[in-house]
Amino acid sequence: MAIAQPTAGVRPSRWQQMWKSVAIIFESRVATVGLAMVLFWLLIGFISLVWTPHEPNASDFIQNLPPNGTNWLGTDHLGRDITSRLMQGTQVILLKTRLPGDSEISIPGGVAIWGVIGSLVLGVTLGLNAGYRGGWWDQIIMQILDALIAFPRIVLYLVVIAALGQGDMVVILAITITGAPGVARLARSLAMDIKTRDYIRAAETRGESVRYIMFREILPNARGPLLVDAMLRVGYAIFAIGTLGFLGIGLPPPDPDWGNMVNEARRNIFSNQTAVIWPSLAIATLVIGLNLFADGLREELTRYQK
């Protein structure tokens, strides 16, 4: 039998395959628009790392200026340039996390991103255990998570921050804890569906360990829905950061944080009406962008599902 035929020409290269899986996004107009909005903010964030029109934290201007030629979006109550602050505000959310202590060291990936990654890790671990093992595992894990869900989110945030103090890591932890139950529920339901498949039986008859089955056999197949969910969660996380900032317990100053900006602008709303709009708009567009992207992606993914 002629088996070893040259196949290199027939099989698409890795790049082509990757492009193929990315191209799915552009099938959906909703996802494309969403992606454009997210990319816009990412771009702004990267630019702000190297250049901003003015020094974001310096009070170089007259207070509460309306938009003008020098300060495109005006200045805030301390005479800081809003454009620059808005640009830099992207960083803490999407691009860097400041480590605790006085050190100036930051790790890549914003607070929102790390928060979602945290809730994914925690949620998936709990959800897979509950879903795959079932029985008592399921009962106990889900009861605890349900109890957690029963608290209002804000209360949970307050509890975490009150216990641990302010800081980027604390916000990440808060997002992780509030996000994990939702992820766990999704992971559990996916695991319960996937564990009925024959390939799981095959792994069991090979005597594979429970951990192997959960993370190597089940998890890769739950990837799609979990990723889409994570995308939405980044949106929620940004919202949460905004909320915390608004309450004044979010990311610590001096670096600008959109939520905090809204809060400060709100206090001065009678002297400067426009300042409150820009950070609100920034939060809204980024969250809507992520939502649209996730929605469009989910639609396309399910359409291709066999």
């Binding site: 024959d198 390939y199 039986r201 095959a202 008859t205």
Partner: peptide, 17 residues
Amino acid sequence: ELQMVFQNPDSTMNPSY
């Protein structure tokens, strides 16, 4: 020494590998 072949071709293989 004991292995099994399954019924449903669509679920006998893990789609991710």
